[in-house]
Nucleic acid binder design. Structure first.
Lengths: 340, 340
DNA sequence: ATTAGCACTCAAATTGCCTGAGTGCTAACA
DNA sequence: TGTTAGCACTCAGGCAATTTGAGTGCTAAT
């Protein structure tokens, strides 16, 4: 059987109607809805065909039809082809003077959630391949040193390190110089045993201190779970089909834990494949089997990028979501470019 | 009418039973439950009295009784009097080497949520009256300065500031020295116009830069919404009485927004009144009208403290919750004392 | 190829009935 | 005078029967 023009029109009508109402849609509705001027009976025949082909489903005999995952998939693929999305013009309202990564991200998550009425999540750029740009030790008081590490992309990490002795200004200066000389430009994985060994011998009497410092820096950078911010998770209550307590609880737990979702977002290998859409069972993780997830990538610079995700019901307004994401992506790209 | 010993026993029995089951409790249950050896009929009479006094409520004719807010209140007050709480011994598993405030707090929130099976929230210590301990500018690259501010309690804040010119090492050193001399030991509110004026004149050619810097520092410290972390918000699904979608949605929104809850926690003026319990309508905020909220204070040092809150159903296991909070409070107090 | 008509199906809402838990009251008892 | 047994009454919740209405599939006519 062939998926001709008319069948497509009908399918699209079914999907769009279902997106709006969330109720199974019947033949009569379609007959009025479209401008095909066909009677409900004809539509019925076509719908029967569409069902046979697997694009729509009858939840039970004598109910209307709803799109299957396959149907959604077709619809989404069509959408993605005509790139011309209408975008509402969203703006991040940010404190321009000082750029704080996390507040940008939080804001972005919120903007998305509010605009789309779905749940959103955004991950901080991944440390992976992020290089050390600058590094500094400072004596804060008798017992503690402050270690500040700035990574490419101007991500700042700081750690307090407890020490037993007070270091002189001179020693600190020496240590700082040394640390920077040896570590600048390296990414975390490149700080291997040989580099560390060299540092230790160079440091003269301060080998144990250096070890400590490297240790703290390394663990604080490595152990870093990818930071992630969610927003609008309660939006899911707006969609009755997610609104039974078991499903809602699962989803909310996933949103609270974030870990699994982060994996989902990064799971397509490391490359940036633009906007990805997971419909229902297509998703590799259990928690979102009843939802759709749309993810996108934003860039800070070569090899440093983060992800944005939108989680909503299967009958998500894909058009709007994709548009919003594209918009936000470019907005973020711009912000980070300016920051450089 | 008087609330004699026997009535108290019965009331306590009713509450305890209701805490366990969540179902209205009837006279027969109590007759068996307590060791008073009274028939259900007698209990009925007593219950009728208790209801008249407002300690218990009948959700509908011919159902059992449930505690009223007044009843809970009495129960909680009694609890608070015999301080001897059993505490399960919870331990924060923390990376001992570097102490990062936010990870301690996150961990604490989680520990509470897991231990109690309620939702928890913890706020970072309030900046209020927090003094500047140390302050440093560093040139990161051609276009940006890094400003690190360490506050009492070893809370570290950092900000990148964009500049147009490259400063020499010497200038930086001078600026740093100056900033520290003038600002050390001040709290945010003490940085007033006169201090700023003095700084500007002292700085010679760098007045505009200084203004910028002060601006960034001040706004970043002032605008800081009190940071707050929540955990276990999905625990509320475990309690059927909160589990209808309207209530759940409200509560979860409040937990996500955090703002209102933060206000609740700090609303009792600034002093530390130990453990506070808000039962149902006693709470000043709308979102928790169907819940109980228990808050406690932990201390970092004089005048610097944060709050912990537990949000659960009215029939919360107050005994356990209060115990857990006391335990955690002392645990936190200890951690921060060690850190000093 | 399209349509009107009709019989059929099934979920959801409505109704009525029953049951069991629980109460309040009264009269009897210690 | 406080306690208890007994009984009538209430009401939520569960269950089954019934109705309703939206929607389908099929067939015969156009």
């Amino acid at each position: 059987m062939e998926l001709d023009e008319r069948k497509m029109t009908i399918l699209r009508a079914i999907i769009q109607n279902y997106l709006e109402t969330g109720e199974p849609v019947g033949s009569r509705t379609i007959s009025k809805y479209t401008d095909l001027n066909l009677s409900s009976a004809t539509i019925r025949n076509e719908m029967s065909d569409l069902e046979e082909m697997g694009y729509i489903i009858q939840p039970h005999t004598s109910a209307g039809r709803i799109p299957s995952d396959k149907g959604y998939r077709l619809y989404v693929d069509m959408l993605m082809q005509d790139k011309q999305m209408e975008m509402d013009n969203l703006k991040l309202e940010l404190n321009a003077k000082s750029e704080k990564l996390d507040s940008i991200l939080k804001e972005a998550a919120k903007v998305i959630a509010v605009n789309t009425n779905y749940a959103s999540m955004i991950t901080a750029p991944r440390y992976h391949r992020r290089r050390i740009k600058f590094l500094q030790l400072t004596q804060v008081d008798n017992a503690s040193l402050l270690a500040v590490v700035i990574l490419e992309g101007n991500v700042v990490k700081n750690n307090l390190i407890h020490v037993d002795e007070v270091l002189t200004q001179e020693t600190l200066l020496k240590l700082n110089l040394m640390l920077n000389t040896f570590l600048q430009g390296l990414d975390i994985e490149e700080i291997n045993a040989s580099v560390m060994q060299k540092l230790r011998t160079e440091s003269g009497g301060y080998a144990p201190l250096i070890s400590d410092i490297l240790d703290v820096i390394a663990t604080s950078l490595e152990n870093e779970e990818v930071e992630a911010y969610t927003s609008g998770s309660t939006n899911i209550f707006k969609y009755p089909e997610l609104n039974d307590s078991a499903k809602a609880s699962n989803l909310l737990t996933a949103l609270e834990e974030k870990k699994e979702l982060t994996e989902l977002m990064y799971q397509e290998g490391d490359s940036d494949r633009g906007i990805q859409v997971y419909i229902g069972d297509e998703s590799p993780i259990e928690a979102t089997k009843d939802c759709s997830v749309v993810t996108a990538t934003y860039h800070i610079e070569e090899g440093v990028y983060g992800k944005i995700g939108i989680i909503g019901p299967r009958r998500m307004d894909y058009k709007k979501v994709v548009g919003t994401l594209q918009n936000l992506m470019s907005e973020l790209d711009q912000i980070f470019k300016k920051g450089k």
